[in-house]
Amino acid sequence: MSVTIKDVAKQANVAPSTVSRVLTDSPRISEKTKRKVRKVMEEMGYHLNFSGRMLVQQSTQTIGVVMKGSSSHSFDNPFFSDVLRGISASCHKHDYSINITTGDSEDAIYRDVIKMVQGKRVDGVIVLYSKEDDQVVPYLRERNFPFVMIGKPTADAKDIIYVDNDNVQASKEVAEFLINLGHEKIGYIGGDTHFEVTTARLTGFQQAVAAYGIDIPDRFYKNIQLNSGDAKKAVGELLSVDEPPTALIVTDDFNALTVMLALQEQGIRIPEEMSVISFNNTIISRLANPPLTTVDTQPYQLGYESADCLVAQLGSDKMFKKSVIVPTVIVERDSCMTRK
């Protein structure tokens, strides 16, 4: 016969209700009692019956994760893998599973979310982006369905719980870092301008160079997507102008790697002839040649905090709407040098 809550309670010399509260990690139970009960559970081989619990609580114990655009492209970028590791760690702590959207287009992802919500497959959702003209977030708000965003919400959605970096400040610090190395001709390579993170980092860069009285010509601004063709085109255009930049800011490690490869194909030495700095501090930045100076946005922590916020929201109807700002720091490696 399987071990029951009553069996555990009897062996631990506590009430069955105490065992139930230990299973939900209730703050009403002392850590000493929790350790004692969990030790008995382990010794007796007790495992929570999730199927029965879900029927009683009307809960799936599952969190939906909405990817940014195509799932295949998202998994190419290690930033999202690091975010998912953080989400997974928090979910494991709280005994939740994960259901990830698998669509290869925005419409397909939107349909995945509808299936999650209307099919009652998940208790809440983590949206891994903040984007203009998005279908998912308005749908979740209309349904009053619990969700958390990674990224600062757009201006008309201030009531949303979100986790993010201060991307304006981080980008200011990147620009100041290059300026302090003696660079004034700085190229800026962003991503999809529909995403809030792209516009925030551009804003920070522009504020920094303006504060230093540096004029960056329009031809020094480029945007690329997740493909090497865009990078080659952007690099070619930047190198072909009169007095090309001496440093480049690229707003994602993945894109920075494609830019570095394009520079090297053109015979440009990094950092001797071109300094490069980017964002996210993923494994790419450590394995790049040369190793890439980058902003550590702590993607693992972004994921972990987002799941923690969602679980807290699911556990309380009166949760205070809050945002979590994860700090950033520049990690200096070998892709930047002083301008002589």
Rank of each mutant, 00 (worst) to 15 (best):
V3W: 02
A12K: 00
A12L: 12
P16H: 06
V19A: 02
R21N: 09
R21L: 12
S26P: 04
I29F: 03
E31L: 08
K36F: 00
M41T: 01
Q57I: 01
Q61A: 10
V65I: 13
V66M: 05
V66Y: 09
S70W: 02
S70G: 03
P78E: 10
V83P: 07
G86M: 08
A89I: 09
A108C: 10
D112Q: 06
V117N: 05
V122F: 02
V122G: 06
V127M: 01
V127S: 04
V127I: 03
L128N: 04
Y129R: 10
K131E: 09
K131Q: 14
D134Y: 05
R141D: 14
E142N: 12
F147Y: 01
A155K: 09
K158H: 12
Y162H: 13
A170M: 03
A170T: 12
V174M: 01
A175T: 07
A175G: 00
L178A: 09
K185Q: 05
G187H: 09
D192T: 12
F195Y: 15
A200H: 13
L202M: 11
G204T: 05
V209E: 09
Y212F: 14
D218W: 00
R219F: 04
R219M: 07
I224H: 10
S228M: 09
A231R: 02
K232R: 10
K232G: 01
G236R: 00
L238E: 01
P244N: 02
D252F: 14
D253T: 04
I268Y: 03
E273S: 04
N280Q: 08
P291Y: 01
V295G: 06
D296A: 06
Y300E: 08
E305C: 12
Q313S: 15
D317H: 12
S323P: 04
V326W: 00
R333H: 03
C336G: 04
R339L: 13
